[in-house]
């Protein structure tokens, strides 16, 4: 089942919904590692590294992803601020 995207995301992004979910799952870690401003290549549930420019990321994506469907997305903390609650799983409540 294709994952859903939050309100405000254009419908044409639906084919990359899985990749977008992966991006948001790894976004906190990438930001903590100082990757903001770089571009992550994502296919399915995998991240194929980060690149300095979007052009480089797209070129690498074409080399690694045979069907040409991948995300080459800028690592930007503002996305986490706006959509983090939608993509991050709720914290599990522990009981003693």
């Amino acid at each position: 089942m294709t994952p859903t995207l939050p309100p405000g995301f254009p419908t044409e992004l639906a084919p990359l919904a899985t990749e977008i979910h992966t991006y948001f799952r790894v976004l906190p870690q990438l930001l903590a590692e100082g990757e903001e401003g770089r571009f992550a290549v994502v296919k399915g549930a995998e991240v194929f590294g980060t690149w300095d420019t979007q052009k480089d990321a797209i070129q690498y994506g074409h080399e690694r992803v045979p069907d040409g469907q991948f995300l080459a997305q800028e690592i930007d903390a503002r996305f986490l601020t706006a959509f983090g609650a939608f993509f991050q799983p709720p914290a599990a409540s522990g009981t003693a």
Partner: peptide, 21 residues
């Protein structure tokens, strides 16, 4: 080919805005 999403500030268009942005 579609490979990314981004921010757009486009007043006067009917692009749905995100209040948190």
């Amino acid at each position: 080919p579609l490979h990314a999403f981004g921010f757009a500030s486009a007043p006067g268009t009917n692009a749905p805005v995100i209040p948190a942005l």
